[in-house]
Design a protein around this nucleic acid. Structure first.
Lengths: 346, 346
DNA sequence: CTGAAAGCGCTTACAG
DNA sequence: CTGAAAGCGCTTACAG
């Protein structure tokens, strides 16, 4: 096609391997794909030829013929959110241990972008999909399901779509958080929520509102700010809460990127975390512990989420209908929610 | 194959679409792939049939036939490293704007895992590869290049492999960092380096050593600790430096995960950042600014790296040989390297 | 502008 | 255990 391409070596196909090994393409195929019906000699010759020629099977052709792939698609909501980066890492390692390669798609908290990736996964004929879904069942999500592609949801679910999932029970952690704040004497607690378009956004808000009611916190709707799980909205949420006529004394953020944004606003405004404003974040990031005032968090086991999702997907691929798994969350109390005995311990 | 699959709707092929539209598969193909040689009526009928049937082209078959794909592979060293998460995000957005879908592979700083992904990219017949390579030219990396797959390196390069790259000139930033520390009166500066197996690991160490020499810092080899770019090695490096008979007064970490590990060790040991130990990290993460003592960093433009790499890859795919791009880095001085006028500003 | 036909690289019943 | 042959779902010269 162009001069650069002219330098390219020829593509080695199974026919080349077969020819060099002196067998038929059928036999070469059997050896290469691990079919037991092959003689030791054929096996040796084919393997040798393949490695000498640097043969790389064409996955397209293979998948076209056999409709089986060792590739799974993992769709996360936002790679820059450490929760999803860790989840991707854990899932990938678990998949690799099972001989599966994971293709990662980043929806970037956008339904359109999610659908781009899901369409790509369909077109690539992946063996299965693990997805943290956006929205209420987009066209491409339906298409994945309609085609019978094995699917597992992680972190989030979609109402009315019955797919096995592994999620986090945020209710327990959030309840503990609210109870803890109530015990510390807080009445007005700001909540920076996730978007209504995600199950986690909705559930965490519901848990918070219910717990706030149960533990006698103010029900002032102005104390709730709906963000989008990304840092800028956390910053905006904190600004909103600080501008309230009756400023809250504590703040809970529904995920770590929004917590980051909120912290950065508090910092800029000179509000001291812990003493001026109690802060709790969902997700336990290592650096939350490194802050001058280490952050109280609602923690959970991300690695377990990833591992479990992969195990579950394998089950689905094998034709089973595994039960959904809900993993626990719990409050870890640190200095950001404890009124210090002194203003500053020197 | 199993009962679960029985529920699956039939796979819609281009023949189904053609039949419903009352045209030949060839015409349907032309419409669907945007070939201009189609009548408006055929176009309308085919598009209508395709959307009614929920047709998803089989990328395998398409690629098998036309050897063209709109999928590129992006291989990063470690998704959990925010630098690479941001890079992946930026590259992905840039690719999407050009109509390309990005498949993300995570080498996890392992050559074996890198090769797994590269093999997958080859087998998936991606249109191009953007890679932050591990090691010195692994077999799979050679295979990618031998096959003439358009490739661009990001962040790292491989000696002796002539591929266009977009990298960061860490030398300028590191020199500024060392000069800054020398001016503050530091003599013994610890350096937590990246692995020798990466070009960035080697270059940054060389820059540091050279600058340390030029600005009269101690050349004690015990002040250099070779890590692996991941948090645990940063923690180990900090422990090593603290255990030295002559403890350094400042510390530079060659990437942010190692900085995170080092900070966590300093914290645990009760070493105050800034006053007890000056700290500089490579990479500017948002949360570095949120620390009680905001961190001095060597910053660079990650988004530009991602965008540039995608543009360059497109150039390579088009048969050009773009020049490699080196983006600048610069020191941003914050409190972690400035001896405060008072021990604590209340 | 359209259709019939060949073929991309593999795998898999089907005979032997 | 092996080979010849068919076919997976597309695209693309080749005629018309």
């Amino acid at each position: 096609m162009n001069e650069g391409e002219a330098l390219t070596g020829p593509i080695i196909t199974i026919k080349d391997v077969a020819a060099m090994a002196g067998v038929s393409p059928a036999t070469a195929s059997r050896v290469l794909s691990g079919n037991p019906a092959t003689s030791p000699e054929a096996m040796a010759k084919v393997m040798d030829a393949a490695s000498r020629l640097g043969y790389h099977p064409n996955a397209q052709a293979r998948a076209l013929r056999s409709t089986r792939t060792n590739v799974i698609g993992l769709l996360v909501s936002d790679v820059r959110n450490p929760f999803f980066a860790d989840l991707a890492h854990a899932a990938e390692q678990a998949a690799l241990a099972k001989g599966l390669v994971t293709l990662l798609g980043n929806a970037n908290e956008s339904i359109e972008q999610q659908d781009r990736y899901l369409d790509t996964f369909i077109s690539q004929r992946v063996a299965g999909v693990i997805a943290a879904p956006q929205g209420e069942g987009s066209p491409s999500l339906r298409a994945v399901l309609d085609r019978g592609i094995s699917t597992v949801f992680v972190d989030r679910t979609v109402d009315g779509i019955d797919v096995p999932s592994v999620t986090i029970n945020s209710d327990s952690g959030i309840r503990q958080a609210v109870e803890h704040l109530a015990r510390q004497g807080h009445k007005r607690v700001g909540y920076i929520a996730g978007p209504e378009s995600t199950s986690t956004g909705r559930e965490r808000l519901r848990s918070f509102s219910q717990a706030a009611h149960d533990f006698g916190l103010s029900g002032d709707p102005a104390l709730t700010y709906i963000g989008d799980f990304q840092p800028a909205s956390g910053a905006a949420g904190a600004r909103h809460l600080l501008a309230l006529p009756q400023r809250p004394t504590a703040l809970v953020a529904a995920d770590s990127p929004m917590a980051l944004g909120a912290l950065s606003t508090l910092n800029r405004e000179g509000i001291r975390i812990g003493s001026d404003m109690a802060v709790i974040a969902f997700d336990d990031l290592e650096w939350f512990r490194l802050l001058d005032t280490p952050l109280t968090v609602i923690a959970h086991d991300v690695k377990a989420v990833g591992r479990t999702a992969v195990g579950m997907l394998l089950d689905v691929i094998d034709g089973h209908r595994p039960e959904s798994v809900v993993l626990p969350s719990e409050l870890i109390v640190r200095a950001s929610t404890i009124t210090p005995p002194m203003e500053q311990v020197l």
